[in-house]
């Protein structure tokens, strides 16, 4: 009975790849065709025309590792920033609330590519940090704003009575948040956070404009030496597609488990 008003309707945040669910058989089939098709296409090209395709495939794995470092690093940092921002957005403290809202508004209004340039060079002016770390911070600052909105929505989806019950037992707002609200909000935000992860993975290709040798950058290096632009970007696109589809499936399974639990 109490679960009726537990909102499950904030899943559609972010622009990650479509997440297949059981109720959506058409999409599931589409996922299968795309995933198997992409792997088959890559294998066929490597076998049919090893030069340049197999050479490209051998050249880019370093880049995949860097892409993952950027993505995982940025999503973790963005979660921390997002939690603070999300709490700020619902805080009754005007300074905290104002700062969080301002951050979200500013970040949303500037293109990601511009932000990456800006934060990268702004950071470079004051501190000497590795390019990879700088790229991670730039991505995290941007995604932290979106993550803040996801977390805010997750917290607000928890019925008001939960906070009231915790307060009526003598808990402070902080204790209630920590023990009662956030653990429940965590379950609600997992799917949209997964979406953000996939969106971030794709957007991480933007860091290739910095001196960070991610998947796209490695491809560009190969292409510019061998003049095989079309072939290289075909491989790069297929690799991104395979990775993204893999994670969207993983998140779909995770989401089903959570729903089965509750």
């Amino acid at each position: 009975m109490t679960f009726k008003d537990t909102a499950k309707n904030i899943v559609d945040v972010g622009d990650g790849a479509a997440i297949p669910t059981k109720s959506d058989r058409g999409l599931f089939t589409a996922w299968r065709i795309a995933f198997v098709g992409a792997i088959a296409a890559l294998a066929f090209l490597a076998w049919h025309k090893p030069d340049p395709y197999f050479n490209i495939i051998k050249f880019v794995p370093d880049g995949i590792v860097v892409t993952f470092k950027v993505t995982v690093g940025a999503i973790l940092l963005a979660l921390v920033i997002g939690l603070v921002t999300g709490l700020g957005r619902i805080s009754s403290n005007r300074l905290f609330n104002g700062a969080a809202s301002l951050y979200v508004e500013v970040i949303r209004g500037i293109p990601l590519l511009v932000q990456i340039f800006y934060i990268y060079y702004a950071l470079g002016r004051f501190v000497k940090i590795p390019d990879l770390l700088s790229a991670i911070i730039a991505m995290a600052v941007c995604y932290g704003a979106y993550m803040g909105e996801v977390i805010r929505a997750g917290i607000q989806s928890i019925p008001k009575g939960q906070m009231e019950a915790a307060l009526s037992l003598g808990m402070t707002r902080g204790q209630a948040m920590l023990h009662v609200i956030l653990p429940q909000a965590f379950k609600v935000v997992l799917p949209p956070v997964g979406n953000e992860f996939i969106a971030l993975l794709k957007d991480s290709s933007l860091v290739s404009i910095l001196a960070v040798a991610d998947l796209l950058r490695r491809g560009r290096e190969f292409a510019s030496e061998s003049f095989t632009y079309f072939e290289t970007y075909t491989v790069i696109a297929l690799i991104y597609l395979i990775i993204t589809l893999f994670f969207s499936k993983l998140i779909g399974i995770m989401e089903e488990r959570i729903n089965a639990d509750s």
């Binding site: 109490t2 537990t6 019925p159 019950a165 003598g170 009662v180 429940q184």
Partner: peptide, 28 residues
């Protein structure tokens, strides 16, 4: 301090759904 001496029971129960019955009773 006031609230820990004042128990409240709600129309919609407001039990903590992520905790067991026993944990609901021990948390506060």
């Amino acid at each position: 301090r006031v609230r820990e001496e004042v128990g409240m029971v709600f129309q919609s129960f407001n039990l903590f759904p992520h905790k067991t019955v026993l944990e609901n009773l021990t948390l506060a």
